[in-house]
Design a binder for these strands. Structure first.
Lengths: 219, 219
DNA sequence: GCTTGAATCAAACGTTCGTTTGAATTCTAC
DNA sequence: GTAGAATTCAAACGAACGTTTGATTCAAGC
């Protein structure tokens, strides 16, 4: 007799939750369908019935939260551009809008949010092109919009220099949310790596300084 | 009759080269021992004979170049601290020493260097703790030395703030050398992602700006 | 009450993986 | 030249993987 309380209200959702947690913990290759379906309280066939394949399941895990997060980003960008004068939103606002929603997403859903952020941070440099491109596809529009906005806020930068600085920004962000294993391994006892608001503040400060760095070594 | 020219002069070295290229391309999990040994012109047993296991082979791939690179970093740091006045080396010198040897390593050995950098960039956030910790072990001394040096060059930062900023710096660096798939996928036709010297220059500018960013929003 | 389609399940399939084995070969030193 | 260690090789092993199959359960719709 199955437990009527924790009954699988929605098998699909349970599979996504289990996959999210296990992929975050062990990576895509390390999270077997058997482990995922066991954790979800179902079986192998169910995963293939609902998603068709393991890769499709992984893609669904990414898309589930990334889509609303990116929508939120673009919504905030729209609002900021409406409010700003004709020079556009200032740098700090843009960085906050770009970085904040992703990192802060972990606050509303502490576990799932953190897992999701880890997966996305890793997916950017993942060898599997399928997964990487599915992530980039979700991000493409946001990247284009933000590139234009940053170009307006940083008119003294050449287009090339701006693209590279955005690359560095994404790297700092992705690496930090992918898990701060390094900083935890070395100073885990003295630092609070769960104070997401504080981390966002620090990251925004750093990124603004980097993005606005002068081109010539005028020290 | 085996080709006397490309004969396996050193099976161990061939295995390291093949593993390096394939792990960079497909990741540790995606690079099978069969693919590695075939590329190296030998067979499965040879890999286990020389390295004992696949994980040990992966660790050897990381250690082979990382150890001399870190030695070079520390050597440059020593030299800079000898030359500097009692305030220690300035920020730009430190960033150059920290970032330069890793990225520029790709110039001397174009293919192997790039592959190795990709592997290291990925290993930092890799789910496999074995590989991650072996990388962190190699880096531990360098990180401690550079933390002290940066603290001297940036006396206005609290220890916490400095650690986070170094975390962001490592992230920007790791993500960039892990492969600029994102920037290439979006603007691959207009940017030269192989001009390593130029990238180092740009990265140093960005990182100096970020590391030295003011703590208060004094705009 | 029977039918239909979606959903779940245990079981098995075929493949690929890392590792091991034992014989063959090559190299080295006496 | 030969003994002995080091190295290479083809073949096989057992485990784990993603996927498929066919039977079974369940909830509506007529």
């Amino acid at each position: 007799m199955p437990d009527p309380i924790s009954d699988p209200i929605d098998t699909k959702q349970s599979l996504l939750d289990a996959a999210e947690a296990l992929i975050a913990e062990r990576g895509v290759a390390g999270a077997s369908l058997r482990a995922i379906t066991t954790r979800a309280g179902t079986n192998l066939a169910a995963a293939n019935y609902h998603f068709g394949s393991k890769k499709a399941l992984a893609r669904a895990v990414i898309a589930r939260h990334l889509r609303p997060i990116n929508a939120e980003r673009l919504r905030l960008l729209d609002a900021a551009e409406d409010e700003a004068d004709d020079r556009g939103p200032d740098l700090e606002s843009l960085v906050n809008i770009f970085v904040g929603p992703v990192v802060r997403f972990g606050r509303e859903m502490p576990d799932r949010g953190r897992h999701f952020a880890q997966i996305c941070g890793r997916a950017m440099t993942q060898p599997d092109p399928m997964l990487r491109e599915s992530l980039l596809g979700e991000l493409a529009e946001a990247i284009q919009r933000f590139t234009k906005a940053f170009a307006r806020a940083l008119p003294e930068l050449s287009p090339e220099e701006l693209l590279w600085r955005m690359q560095f920004m994404v790297g700092a962000m992705a690496h930090t949310i992918a898990g701060s294993q390094m900083i935890e391994a070395i100073h885990g006892d003295t630092l609070d790596t769960r104070d997401l608001d504080g981390i966002v503040e620090r990251m925004v400060r750093f990124l603004c300084g980097g993005l606005a760095a002068p081109m010539e070594g005028s020290r």
